[in-house]
Amino acid sequence: MRAKNFYRASSLDDAYRKLLESPKNSIIAGGLWIKKLGQSYDTLIDLSLLGLDQIVDSGPFIKVGSMVSLRSFETSPLIKHICGGIASTAAGEIMGVNFRNLATIGGSIFGRYPFSDVITALLTLDVTLEFYPEQKMSLEEYLNYRGKVQGILTSIDIKKEEGTCFYKKVKTTALDFPLVNIAVSLRNNHHYIAVGSRPMIASLAKQAMKDADLGKDSKQVAKQAISEYLFADSISIGKDYRREIAEVYVRRGLEEVSK
């Protein structure tokens, strides 16, 4: 990775102006993915002085600042209390503690990385993203948004809801990227099913979710869910294997959440 400048923004406006100055400027967040990508930048914009590292209980929502580290996110009791702690579980399976203390929740979401990880789990919750300049959209809208959002992700608002959940990250070694990840939740009498790292980014299986709400057999629902997804090959795993394990874990997830 190469960067000519490192800029500590004094306000969101300041950061945004800097971002617009050049297409070779970027927000750095934790900086883990930027290191991995190894590209060249003019200016890396640091948001760490802007107080975006707080997790706040704001009534119906838990507001998570985009600069909250994955480790703080994972260990926060507020996050653990949402729907069986599915988001906490998903964050806790990303690399080691010494990685998660650096990586941020905002970076993990804004990048829309195909391995999805925490996105897969968050998709099964009610999540709204806040950007600067003022713009709000649901996580799902953001994932489907074409092109790059011209803004800075500032807050991830997760609705406080009770419920049951299931999360599975299939991986060959503890520190690997997921081969596929599966999240299932049941909240307010509605089922949510998300599969990510197929190796494409996570999405919801809408028809299967309806079927599950109607009380259809979990085997059938899992079959339906899998039929809604495209799977592809990657170096480590073929699409057929991906599809088969995903189906099994969706079924197990459905059984788990309705226990």
Binding site: R8, I28, G31, K35, D46, R71, V97, N98, N101, L102
Partner: peptide, 12 residues
């Protein structure tokens, strides 16, 4: 907090 020094910029 344990952190990987190969992956964090000194400026950070």
């Amino acid at each position: 907090k344990p952190s990987m020094s190969c992956s964090v910029l000194t400026a950070q």
